[in-house]
């Protein structure tokens, strides 16, 4: 069996093994797992299924385990804020990653769709958090990964938590990296008497780069997610980088996505400045009506 065929079979197994099917529940918790975490990826539409860095622990466990450390935070208008930290270590053909992310928000009491709360602080304080540990192993050219997430959603005095699981696979084809993952496999949460599924989703992605075009280096990412209710979220972005001196690089990013969080504007932009192993990433997203506000994200990456 060729490797590509094996990879194809693995992809199919992952896609259908998770129980794809339409669901009637309209609410998904925790909120934090429905937002793109990596600030670099935020500038490119959040398409990070095939992206490989420490933040990949949140988007595809097969791409976790890349050595490095990321720290980042986001501010949603004047109402909510989010933060994350992730680190990875590789040991030969294996890797280990850890990550934590949280979202602090306030939602109007009894509001059925909490996304609107990201831009407007409601009466009930909300906290959505996750802690992830992921392990990877390369076997016959394919990187396999699995992750466990400790998930919790807290609104006012009510809260529920669970453990979710991710599985994924990734492979490089020359300069193209591909990844496939099933994320957030786990039981239903019950917050304030309202049942909410984990947002289980099937994600397929590819990234390419970086190709020299004139003085610039160009990288591109793309991903397509299908949530358990069948909601399809395509995403893609490009990154243009320019280095004038070894170790110094500035990058500009743009992307688009149909976000799971419907109050997020699909267009995103970002930028970064890198100096040797250190990179400062910035991303700008927008909340659309009826939510209001701009999302500024900033992160420090240590490669």
């Amino acid at each position: 069996m060729t490797r590509s065929r094996r990879f194809g079979l693995a992809a199919t197994a992952l896609a259908f093994g998770g129980g794809l099917g339409a669901q009637s529940v309209a609410t998904y918790y925790p909120l934090v797992v429905q937002l793109p975490v990596s600030v670099r990826s935020q500038g490119m539409g959040g398409a990070w299924t095939a992206g490989r860095d420490a933040d990949a622990v949140f988007s595809n466990p097969a791409n976790a385990g890349a050595s490095g450390m990321n720290l980042g935070g986001s501010r949603f208008g004047s109402a909510s804020s989010a933060g994350h930290a992730a680190t990875g270590l590789s040991f030969g053909s294996t890797g280990l990653s850890l990550g934590v992310a949280w979202l602090d928000y306030g939602t109007p009491s009894g509001a059925p769709v909490p996304w609107r709360a990201l831009g407007e602080r409601g009466d009930d304080d909300g906290l959505s958090a996750q802690a992830v540990v992921a392990g990877t192993m390369t076997y016959r050219g394919i990187r396999w990964g699995g992750a466990a997430r400790l998930l919790e959603e807290r609104i006012a005095n009510a809260h529920d938590g669970t453990i979710g699981f991710d599985i994924g696979a990734a492979r490089e084809f020359g300069q193209i990296s591909t990844g496939i993952a099933v994320l957030n496999i786990g039981r239903t949460l019950d917050v304030q008497g309202r049942k909410a599924f984990l947002p289980t989703r099937y994600s397929l992605g590819a990234s390419a780069g970086s190709y020299p075009i004139g003085p610039l280096d160009v990288a591109a990412v793309a991903a397509a997610d299908i949530r358990r209710d069948g909601r399809f979220s395509p995403a893609g972005g490009v990154e243009l980088s320019y280095s004038w001196l070894d170790g110094y690089v500035v990058s500009f990013r743009a992307g688009a996505r149909r976000f799971e969080a419907e109050s997020l504007n699909p267009l995103t932009v970002g930028a970064s400045f890198g100096l040797d192993r250190f990179v400062v990433d910035y991303a700008l997203m927008d909340l659309r009506a009826p939510a209001r506000g701009t999302i500024h994200s900033l992160a420090l990456r240590v490669r």
Partner: peptide, 11 residues
């Protein structure tokens, strides 16, 4: 500062 960083680090 950015310009100084860049130029200053060029030998």
């Amino acid at each position: 500062v950015a310009a100084l960083l860049a130029v200053g680090c060029r030998t």
